[in-house]
Design a protein around this nucleic acid. Structure first.
Lengths: 117, 117
DNA sequence: GGCACCTGTCAAAGATTCCTGACACATCTC
DNA sequence: GAGATGTGTCAGGAATCTTTGACAGGTGCC
């Protein structure tokens, strides 16, 4: 059976993905998590970035579905949140952008903060 | 002859593309230009947006190589700048992001304004 | 208890991006 | 000349995003 045709992401989804990836730090974070999943504090040290900041960037990436974090219990009892990248795949072409643009709910702009879901 | 393997965009390039496309207005602009190339003033009216603003967004899109504008002389002598989308194609996967992240010149961050080139 | 490590959140400052109104210049038409 | 349409740019305020330092809570070890 042939591969499924390229799925068309919704405008809101694509918007979150693109704005999440369109940042140097976030790109590096994805790159760092590519070679090995890691927990927040260690990652922060590795790429030289404050924890609160990293935390926020990871949230943005997770909200876009590009990485996932799971709270794990280390042997010594400490709880640490490990993050790893998801095998995402997006294609960017004029057509796809046009399709996505047609499905932008406007809410994506203002709901960003109320995004309690 | 087989298709060429997916080219790996540089970090700076991908960064410009993603941040350019990661904006509702810019997505709509691309969508609008998809169905018909148009000149600035007309486009501004079509999507209800001020000219100065549209001008800025178009610049961002053009800088990312997603659209191209050409100054043309209308029959009545008026010079108008027509924009049209370029047949761009980008793939977004963890690998590609990681590769791109490794080639970020930092300059991309600060050069944005001095980008006189 | 005191120290080291983990997690998370908040508020305030800094830096960017986004948006608007005003201005300058050019051409054609009435 | 006055008016309509086109192009482009600039200054200033509004809205966002980014970044930092301080705090709070938790567990294990000396």
């Amino acid at each position: 059976m042939p591969e499924v045709p390229p799925p068309a992401p919704t405008g809101d989804e694509l918007l979150k993905v693109l704005s999440a990836l369109g940042n140097p730090h976030r790109m590096r974070i994805v790159a760092a998590l590519m070679e090995s999943r890691n927990y927040v504090s260690a990652l922060a040290r590795e790429i030289g970035m404050g924890r609160p900041l990293l935390h926020m960037h990871l949230q943005r990436l997770e909200a876009a579905g590009l990485v996932v974090g799971t709270l794990e219990l280390a042997e010594d009892g400490k709880t640490m949140k490990y993050f790893e990248v998801t095998p995402f795949f997006y294609e960017l072409t004029p057509h796809i952008i046009a399709q996505a643009a047609a499905t932008i709910t406007e809410t994506a702009d203002r709901t960003a903060k109320e995004e309690a879901k």
